[in-house]
């Protein structure tokens, strides 16, 4: 049996010194998708940031592909994290933003910025300054990283925010294709979405 892509063992997490997640454990294997749900403040974003290696749990262990995650050495070749913020420099065009990433990232991208932006329907706006794009267009540029880099684990925080119906459908197809390629997805969303695979739902309680 293959190793799980992600193993979370008894993690506790704090935000601004308040405990938001207590003793959470789960694992994600190839082809699986996990949806984190719960009301505002239940710690969905905090969990995703911990899984990405951006914050360290107070207790417990997060391992990707059997390797413990630390915030000093993000294993960029095993994860792509799409957070709340789009992560784009407003005074650069979408293509310039992606080209910069493709030049500095390790490992190198599997597709170039032009083709990825074309796939996402942003061919005509790839040279426009990001500051002039709509919220939905910025979100699509942010999602371009999913197609540009090859990583088995996708961590998606409210990925459907600001997307129109066709873009939402395209993201659902991208998730399906990723799961077919034996990838795994952990996402936090309040929206309903369609997925070919069965979605495992984790409902997070609010810790008072």
């Amino acid at each position: 049996m293959s190793k799980p892509i992600l193993e979370v063992t008894n993690i506790s997490l704090s935000r601004a010194q308040n405990l938001v997640v207590r003793d959470l454990s789960f694992s994600v294997s190839s082809g699986e998708i996990i949806q984190l749900s719960g009301s505002n403040g239940s710690g969905k974003t905090t969990i995703l940031r911990a899984l990405a290696g951006l914050i360290m749990p107070d207790n417990g262990r997060v391992a990707r592909l059997g390797e413990k995650v630390g915030n000093t050495t993000p294993s960029s070749n095993s994860v792509i994290y799409i957070g709340h913020r789009h992560g784009l420099e407003e005074n650069l065009s979408p293509l310039e933003n992606l080209n910069f990433l493709s030049q500095v990232s390790t490992p190198s991208p599997i597709r170039d910025g032009v083709s990825v932006l074309g796939t996402l329907g942003l061919k005509t706006s790839m040279h426009v300054l990001t500051t002039r794009l709509s919220a939905g267009q910025k979100q699509r540029v942010s999602l371009a990283r999913l197609l540009m880099f090859d990583a088995p684990l996708w961590l998606l925080d409210e990925p459907f925010t600001a997307l129109d119906t066709s873009s939402k459908k395209q993201l659902e197809n991208m998730i399906d294709a990723h799961l077919d390629r034996k990838g795994a997805v952990v996402l936090a969303t309040h929206q309903t979405f369609n997925c070919k695979s069965q979605v495992i739902n984790y409902s997070l309680p609010v810790i008072v």
Partner: peptide, 14 residues
Amino acid sequence: RSGALEVIHLSGAD
């Protein structure tokens, strides 16, 4: 503020 620093960090850039 934009989250670009986070993206750069997670991209594995030196």
